[in-house]
Design a protein around this nucleic acid. Structure first.
Lengths: 247, 247
DNA sequence: GGAAACTGTACATATATGTGAATTTTAATG
DNA sequence: CATTAAAATTCACATATATGTACAGTTTCC
């Protein structure tokens, strides 16, 4: 069950992140098509908790810096090492495509760092974006780091859907693709989940965290050079990852 | 009316900001005393929206960097000029008390930047903290920047409560205190709102934004030297605020 | 200066939603 | 490996809550 008012809080914040200016109750209500009374209650709640204020008289509401303060506290814990951002930045620059760091979230994979392609036609993804773990290059690069038991446990929760012609729709199909990936040296996907979208990914374990790096873009651009892209990812990781004597 | 599930989202985030480590469904449910089923729904909603993930298998949930990304987008709009943070930092350092920048939010005043005192006994405030605009030094320093009509409009919405012996409990009492503040050259409060708490504040208009700076602490420490503290605030603002040729 | 238009607020009620109990899945222990 | 304990998940129902309606306050425009 989805908790509507919880989702609405997020929507409001996303609204402000886009609008980048204060908005009145009426504007917000109209934007979402919410009743004014409900909007009133929500805004009152957020204000009361110190997350919204009125920068200038009669100009409407805007989030307080409390969001930033809180987000900072949360994110200063085990932040990704700085080189991983360099990694995706470099990969995006060199390939001209969108590059991301991805982490597991149950049957899904979440983008936790993203540098977007600058091309007009590009893979549009943002931090927080989620994709099925079994039907994407990045997700499978995560699965490769799981034990067989852990994978089985994930498989049991997956609802296998035919997102596209090449979507693996059985446990065996996923396992087969994982074996192929190992043989090939990298994970790939050609519209397994999103139409026309192709990507190359490799596992990126950091400490005890299981992450992956992926470069993704339109099939017609990535397709011909997946292997090259994958090799580039591997080389770039090799170059940027600090050498530990322990390893 | 308070929107419970909206408030719960904020509570969860605050929980993570404090805990600074992943937490399982059960831990969160127990911490708040929520039913597990409800907690499940909430966590599922936040996960589905890309705001929570599972950093490692079976280790529980943690917020994704999406919060940070969103908070940054929101806060990069008209950020406070950097010198205002220096201002509160310097004031806190020199006085040993808590110093803050405050903004209006209807009948309340919100702290939008805070540097806390390091003393054991201190005014504990965080960004987002709210106090009544008419019963605090910082709030009155905001009211001083309003026109008479705007003040009247605010007064009509205030519920006058006797927070402490010196709380102004009528419009006339507030107006009188404002007149005193003008004569005195700064705003002050001695337990008007919080017992044992005293503070000195002055208006801090920035562009068309109406803000104020306040230094606050226990009455016994601040009391004897309010005037000095107020003078220090004024001098520090004078020193740090960039001189505009236009002004 | 008067009225129309708009924004924000209160409240009773129907309904969407949170919850307790039951079920399934996963981990721990001998 | 069998058994127990704990955690996660599902679901039907009573209840807390979102909303339609009505109203008050504020601004704008003629």
């Amino acid at each position: 069950m989805i908790v509507r008012q919880a989702a609405n809080v997020l929507e409001i914040m996303e609204f402000f992140a886009q609008a980048k200016k204060p908005a009145t109750l009426a504007e917000i209500a109209d934007h979402f098509g919410w009743p004014r009374s409900s909007t009133f209650n929500l805004l009152a709640t957020l204000s009361e908790k110190g997350y919204l204020y009125e920068p200038r008289p009669r100009a409407g509401f805007y989030p307080t810096p409390r969001w930033l303060a809180m987000a900072r506290m949360i994110s200063e814990v085990e932040p990704l090492p700085p080189w991983t951002h360099t990694l995706v930045a470099d990969l995006s620059a060199e390939t001209g495509e969108t590059a991301s760091i991805v982490a597991p979230a149950g049957v899904m994979a979440v983008f936790i760092d993203v540098v977007e392609s600058k091309a007009a036609i590009r893979y549009f993804a943002t931090i927080g974006h989620r994709v099925p773990i079994h039907a994407t290059a990045s997700g499978r690069a995560l699965l490769l780091q799981y034990s067989q038991e852990e994978r089985d446990s994930v498989y049991r929760k997956i609802e296998f859907k035919q997102y596209g012609p090449s979507t693996p729709i059985s446990i065996e199909a996923v396992e087969a693709e994982l074996r192929n990936s190992i043989a090939r040296g990298y994970c790939q996907s050609f519209g397994d989940y999103s139409r026309d979208l192709a990507g190359a990914a490799i596992p990126l374990p950091i400490g005890d965290r299981r992450l992956s790096v992926v470069v993704a873009g339109p099939e017609f651009r990535i397709g011909p050079k997946v292997a090259d892209v994958a090799a580039l990812i591997a080389r770039t990781v090799e170059r940027l990852r600090p050498k530990t004597t322990a390893a």
